[in-house]
Design a protein around this nucleic acid. Structure first.
Lengths: 207, 207
DNA sequence: CCTACTCGATACCGACCGGTATCGAGTAGG
DNA sequence: CCTACTCGATACCGGTCGGTATCGAGTAGG
């Protein structure tokens, strides 16, 4: 209780939880560059200008650190996803915009997709990690589902597929197209995501 | 040149390249169970009933072994993919069938998808591996493209998207839905793949 | 001012990794 | 039968990993 917020006193000790942030930020960067499995605690600590001892002083171990980082990113990612399906008036414009933003996400967040898929691989062999990822992923799925349902109601569409299934397809396409982009960028046009989105949102013809 | 094919003589030495097969098969199984990165040469050799020395006698090293296995699987996978878009007469039936087979592939070949995505992660940080994967992936993409184009011509469809882009979407969905299935199987209905395929294959309405 | 405590640096542990040198058992060619 | 050779087992290398025990510098409370 003796912590005074108004005094920027020249404290020698760096701060209690600021070290934690330093470690998390450094680990995030190194993970993005090298991958999770290929990064050691020493590298993380060195990138943060600290040593392994500091990491073990702030985290239970390697797994705890990884969990913390992915948890943080997953939350951040969910907030982003919920805002993607915006409140545009025109349907064409809305789908194009949403698709474009998702597509740009694929590009700029390429490292994120790499990290997520590696984490997914870890989760597939570790029940504890799996349940955590499943929880977050379910939240994300529900958020996207709600956004799709809302957008559909707004534009008076009756979708050819249930919103929750469309949400799954969007998530799957996001990861899947990121993979194909990674293999050969030229094979995945920028407009592809929104093109597909339009096809999936447009009601089926009478045949 | 003295190799006699007609004599099943009781040779003590197990065979020349049979050992190689034993190693490949064992490695395939262990990789499927534990992942590539988490598997050591000792484990592979032990699973094959051999030792590390045998592996180094048949392969240049760990990377060479991994490459061999993935190459083998990628080829096998391509042959499978080219036959998926079959020669059914009815359009609905054809898309349903193709979607169902792709969907079942997602399920039964779950371990394959895990392996491929891990390998993709490796390729993303290793130019040599990347180029090899890109080569195979391009072949696969072309094969699927050709199959789609052929099926479209057969049914007199004019597709709402170019065949090569549809092929990319199919590949992306295959991986992406496999990921979502791994996270929560109940979120990905069996029919989802074929439902989406139908929507993507049906020509756009006049609006 | 002094004590009790926090936290990060240092040094170190056992385990395990990929890779290599060596050597002996087994085989084929003459 | 004997020699030249193949191939896999064994033993070992240097290096790196996650994790821990310890210790001293710095801080807060009294």
């Amino acid at each position: 209780m003796a912590a005074m917020a108004a005094s920027p006193s020249p404290r020698r000790r760096p701060a209690r939880a600021e070290t934690r942030r330093r470690i998390v930020d450094a680990a995030t960067e190194v993970f993005a560059r090298q991958g999770i499995a290929a990064t050691s605690l020493n590298e993380i600590a060195a990138a943060a200008g600290l040593t392994k001892g500091a990491v073990y002083s702030n985290f239970a171990g390697r797994d705890d650190l990884v969990l913390t980082i992915m948890e943080e990113h997953l939350v951040e990612r969910m907030h982003l996803a919920t805002t993607v399906f915006g409140d545009l008036a025109d349907l064409d414009e809305a789908t194009t915009e949403a698709g474009a933003r998702l597509a740009s996400g694929i590009d700029t967040d390429a490292t994120w997709h790499r990290l997520l898929l590696e984490y997914w691989g870890i989760a597939m062999r570790n029940p504890t990690v799996h349940s955590g990822l499943a929880r977050r992923r379910a939240q994300l799925r529900e958020a996207v589902t709600a956004a799709i349902a809302k957008a559909a109601a707004q534009h008076g569409l009756d979708l050819p597929l249930p919103p929750e299934q469309l949400a799954v397809v969007m998530l799957a396409l996001s990861n899947g197209l990121a993979v194909e982009r990674g293999v050969e960028a030229a094979a995945v046009p920028d407009t592809l995501f929104s093109d597909v989105l339009k096809l999936l949102v447009t009601p089926r013809p009478q045949r």
